[in-house]
């Protein structure tokens, strides 16, 4: 055999998209939120994002080094987790707590369950919930945005305001109110969403169904719809956390069910729960149902349905 030929299974070409590329798209989509956080809350926002992201990447690298697993850092998924986690914290968060959050997200929620693609819930989300339970006062610290004057909205998170109908919608849209770093500026989140859709990184089904369900339910309940959509973690959660590949359903039907469920739970918690905010728990709860949703919302194969002879 002078001419040795390579033999592989078909297909012999692959598409352009890569895991790293998709994660890169998410990072790009998060940039407007980071910029908005820095403008609204000051330069400390960048420090917090940097430290949290570095901690996530560091923990992922160390974990795989110690367990002699291939180094996964290049897929950029830990960077995405780090940024999302940081944007889920108020700007005043002590850095050491941010590092604890990174440990929970990467080591406990992601790697202990098998790493990328195998985690049962969104790592950043579980870390956010854990920090809420462990450091509740510091997680819910209300930060008056650095960019606004004294006459600005200065109550606690606007979701606790008695009369939500009276809130200035433009300020809410631009993010000039208290909250965690990433969730306040709806404009930045929407820019990110546009990029995620244009780059075909995610489908619009989950965010649209989720937000539409919430909007319809609040309208039926006679509550101000826009103020509810623009405040709290709803928009950020719907765009960046509910659309995580691993923890959302595969099919169009599944995504519709998922978005509907998210909307129902979020509405229920905001309306009747003691918590001001329901987005994290709604997403966590629906994350856990994803395997069942996947099995119950399969596609009908072409010519399928009948028993095989």
């Amino acid at each position: 055999m002078e001419n040795r030929l390579l033999v592989t299974a078909s297909p012999h070409i692959t598409g352009r998209d890569t895991t790293r590329g998709l994660m890169g798209n998410v990072i790009a989509a998060l940039v407007p939120c980071i910029v908005a956080a820095a403008i609204i809350f000051g330069w400390q926002a960048l420090l917090l994002v940097g430290v949290t992201t570095a901690a996530c990447v560091g923990f992922e690298y160390l974990y795989c080094l110690i367990l002699k697993k291939p180094n996964p850092v290049g897929d950029l998924s830990a960077v995405v987790t780090g940024i999302i986690l940081a944007l889920n914290m108020p700007v005043t968060m002590p850095l050491w707590i941010a590092v604890v959050g990174a440990f929970i997200a990467i080591v406990i929620v992601k790697q202990l369950f098998g790493g990328i693609g195998a985690n049962f819930a969104n790592p950043a989300l579980v870390a956010r919930i854990a920090l809420f339970s462990g450091f509740s006062t510091r997680m819910t610290a209300v930060v008056i945005p650095a960019c606004v004057g004294v006459d600005a909205l200065s109550s606690a998170t606007p979701l606790q305001t008695a009369d939500m109908g009276s809130l200035p919608l433009l300020d809410l849209f631009l993010g000039k109110y208290g909250g965690v770093m990433g969730e306040t500026c709806s404009l930045a989140i929407l820019i990110g969403l546009v990029w995620l859709l244009v780059s075909r990184t995610i489908s619009a089904v989950i965010p649209v169904t989720y937000l539409a369900t919430v909007a319809v339910l609040f309208a039926i309940a006679g509550q101000p719809v826009l103020a509810n959509l623009l405040t709290g973690g709803l928009l950020f959660g719907a765009v960046f956390m509910a659309t995580d590949y691993v923890t959302s359903p595969f099919t169009l039907r599944g995504k519709l069910v998922f978005g509907l469920g998210l909307g129902l739970i979020t509405f229920a918690i905001r309306m009747w729960g003691d918590l001001p905010e329901g987005v994290s728990y709604a997403i966590l709860f629906m994350n856990l149902l994803v395997p069942y949703i996947n099995d119950l919302t399969r596609q009908v194969p072409l010519g399928g349905g009948k028993k095989h002879g």
Binding site: T18, T19, L22, P72, D75, S77, I116, Y245, V246
Partner: peptide, 13 residues
Amino acid sequence: AALPAPGPCIRCG
């Protein structure tokens, strides 16, 4: 002819 190395499934669907 070289194909990229496979990584873990990210369940993107």
